[in-house]
Nucleic acid binder design. Sequence first.
DNA 1: TTAATTGCAAACCCTTTGCTTCATC
DNA 2: GATGAAGCAAAGGGTTTGCAATTAA
Lengths: 130, 130
Amino acid sequence: MKLGSRTTKQKRVILEILQNTDTHPTADWVYQEARQILPDISLGTVYRNLNLLRDLGKIQELNYGSGQSRYDGNPVNHYHFVCEKCKKVLDLDLSVVVDLDEEIREKYGFQVFNHRLEFYGLCKTCQEDD
Amino acid sequence: MKLGSRTTKQKRVILEILQNTDTHPTADWVYQEARQILPDISLGTVYRNLNLLRDLGKIQELNYGSGQSRYDGNPVNHYHFVCEKCKKVLDLDLSVVVDLDEEIREKYGFQVFNHRLEFYGLCKTCQEDD
DNA sequence: TTAATTGCAAACCCTTTGCTTCATC
DNA sequence: GATGAAGCAAAGGGTTTGCAATTAA
């Protein structure tokens, strides 16, 4: 797998961490995990590689409200649910409506690359806590 | 219209600015506009009131990628197109699919308050620039 | 009168960046 | 060996916050 002009252990470890979690972690969480494998890795390197992997289309960067970005090891478009209480981001198993992109293209003449659909509310656990 | 526990001219001016534009401006743009009416207003006050108006449900805060938040004077849910080149945010005249919220509620048991749908691509003007 | 809100500036937080050293190709 | 990438730490940019002064109620 091509990962930019040079493959470093840092790059590989960061990608593996993201591919082995479905928690949509923040850069700092990835950093903490990576340090357990490469104790000398720096936060700057984590950010640099997250941006690089995103630009290569290997991962997705997600932003919900202000605060940290979250990263998704699944590069294929899919939809998310964000719990407004515990801030968890959960994958949804909904079929991606590609027709929508075409609809916008026809109606407005925009070139559409992709779309994002997110739901906001309370997850099961946080509903019980009320 | 109730605008929190006290109605100040700052609060009123900020809301009016947002209600009279469809450009989905940043906090700083709102600040520059507000200064033309209230020269002594501070950026901190703009942020405080934007957050307040958002919490009151009078406006919406929108985040696209990292960078500044944008604010929408229309509190009713609607969908947006974001031009990845010129960064303009445009309103889309699509019917809001409320059924989706119900679908998620039934399928996952989450309490869904709302959803956001955004399209990314190139607006007409930026396609011509290629 | 009195308590919410402002203006100001400093603090905060996340992210990026400059520079030297390291390591991949 | 050449040069892209890492580590470190400082800078950056947007947003929040503490506090004294102001102002709406």
